[in-house]
Design a protein around this nucleic acid. Structure first.
Lengths: 351, 351
DNA sequence: CTGTTAGCGCTTTCAA
DNA sequence: TTGAAAGCGCTAACAG
């Protein structure tokens, strides 16, 4: 066996430390620190330049972990989403990242897989990183106990000085970027009625997710305003995923057959699944059965027929969340409300 | 002014430290550390239990930053993507996160906005966090200089002991999860010819992105095998985004008019934009002009007509990447090749 | 404005 | 095995 096959450069070069920089600049550690990372400038220009030059020369980059332990706080925001592959969440993440970067914060993402137990576990694990902020999007609770445990965990995080921000979540004692789910759905329903639709099926009547519940309630409310009610059999529960939309709609179609003239899915992702299910059942979405969703994800516009939906400024949601998180500590129970607006497209032509 | 309006609990409770745990357990700091986080177990069971109990009681969670500075290494992997809202990247991210969590690693995500300058800046900034791994997906280089700068930066990161893994990137001296872009595109082309297509237009002939170039070359290769060539005017450059696909196709259609029987977009996201452009131009995608993409993002199956494409195991890509990163240090220049496979769907019916 | 000197919370020798 | 003590890289009083 030869040792000569050291093709790859195995030389481990330790990163330059602030100490190195100070030494080559001929100043003290403290001065170097002040020149490079200190908040208020009070270093003689000449020194500052020497330090900066030395840092440049040595390729110095401050060790964020070390800074964190010294300062007692990090520059991290932890984002928790159900599924980063879902356009709804990835759009939100996009906004969060944009906002965070603008504020010099780093974003860490964890995925709950829509599992409330897992969510709790992750939140607990997150604490180790001592993030400045934890943002929860799309969290859920199997039951009251789960809800209590999560709230307790988050509150203890707050007690440690961290900030918690929720996105589109109600009834939880934390600053929240609230979505106008209910009235958005109500408007949608009313406009659909105006378009001539009368016999509705609804997919995604989740019990555990307030967002879904609000959208359902709002929709029913809007219909009720026109004296239209929906047969309880035509309201089906289903996971808020593409597959949930597909199977939920398939079920609906089995029961309701051609008794429906429109399917409302509580999210666009589901609505897209719904369209496929409608096709699979031999109907033409839009023409024979209208389809409407909620969120206005990018894919909604490109679907065929283009999807009628309620537009939600997803990017904004994320940016608002970090804005809320960065607000001064003394505005208790802050809340940002984000408006929604109905977008009628080809999937719900007048009838 | 009254002080009584302290409604919100402003009490800042410092997080329990290992020191606290050791004290309430009645053992030394070292023992507590060993019991809780030490690698090799060599703590008397009785002590271990006392420590664990104390930790539980105090709600102790190790401060990761402190661990990082003490150990000299973090548990972080930094993922760089062009756009987390793009299904291609969010699927990859999903895989990376899954893989990382399984290995006890935390994922940090940064977005380059497809800007090579920004990308370099981010990589530089990332160093501060001293991640264990940096994963680059979809990076690009404006020119040779930019490429050199990025490589240098990454190599110096490696020299510091970090690992670099690239996803679907060629010609760079780092471990890479390589995609079989070329032969995937070749197969696609051949199968389309078999379907009866002859007059092709291609959208997304990026110069700066190897992935796009490989797909283009492979596609042309496949056509050439059947003695079919593509008019250079029918090959248009365009950003690898939905809008790029739309405008690129619009341009193509203007020039080539009804001279085409199929549009190949080098990514599904573009292909979806292409479909909309085809519709906007008054053609029926699938029927009058076939459409094919590449990646098989989830939306491909649900588009209407369903999109013919080359399936790429996006989730795997991400998982493989972290697998590569976690491999022992002494396998130089590791590479994982991921196979692709053609999926014919409704957007390219036989003609 | 600068340098000295404690820490921050944790790991890891090194003796005991 | 355990504990004392010396760091890890950086910040923040605290005197000069």
């Amino acid at each position: 066996m030869s040792n000569d096959q050291n093709l790859a450069p195995r030389t481990r070069v330790a990163a330059a430390t602030l100490h190195d920089v100070a030494r080559t600049a001929g100043v003290s550690l403290a001065t170097a620190s002040r020149a490079l990372n200190g908040s208020d400038r009070k270093v003689k220009e000449e020194y500052r330049l020497r330090v900066v030059a030395a840092a440049e020369e040595l390729g110095y980059t401050a060790n964020l972990s070390a800074q964190a332990v010294a300062k007692g706080s990090t520059m991290t925001v932890a984002l928790l989403v159900s599924d980063i592959g879902d356009p709804y969440f990835s759009s939100i993440a996009s906004g969060v990242i944009r906002g965070a970067e603008a504020a010099g914060l780093v974003v860490t993402i964890a995925v709950t897989d829509r599992d409330s137990e897992r969510e709790l576990k992750i939140v607990r694990a997150l604490r180790g990183g001592r993030p400045r902020v934890i943002i929860l999007a799309g969290s859920r609770f199997a039951d009251e106990a789960a809800r209590g445990a999560l709230v307790a965990e988050l509150q203890s995080f707050e007690a440690m000085g961290g900030r918690v921000v929720l996105i589109s979540q109600g009834e939880l004692p934390f600053p929240t970027v609230q979505l106008d789910n209910r009235s958005g759905a109500r408007d949608l329903a009313e406009q659909l009625v105006e378009q001539g639709y009368r016999r509705f099926g609804i997919v995604g009547a989740s019990q555990t997710l307030l967002t879904a519940k609000d959208r359902l309630d709002g929709f029913l409310e809007g219909l009720a305003a026109h004296n239209i009610s929906v047969d309880p059999d035509h309201i089906v529960d289903a996971p808020l995923t593409r597959d949930g939309g597909y199977t939920g709609t398939a079920t609906l179609l089995e029961h309701a057959g051609s008794d429906l003239d429109l399917v409302f899915a509580v999210t666009d992702v589901m609505a897209i699944g719904a369209m496929s299910a409608i096709r699979a059942a031999g109907f033409i979405p839009g023409e024979q059965i209208g389809v409407a969703g909620f969120d206005d994800i990018p894919a909604a516009e490109d679907s065929s027929p283009a999807l009628t939906t309620v537009a939600v400024p997803l990017l904004d949601l994320g940016q608002r969340a970090i804005a809320l998180a960065l607000e001064p500590d003394d505005s208790p129970q802050a809340e940002a409300i984000v408006a929604t607006s109905v977008v009628l497209r080809g999937s719900t032509p007048p009838r």
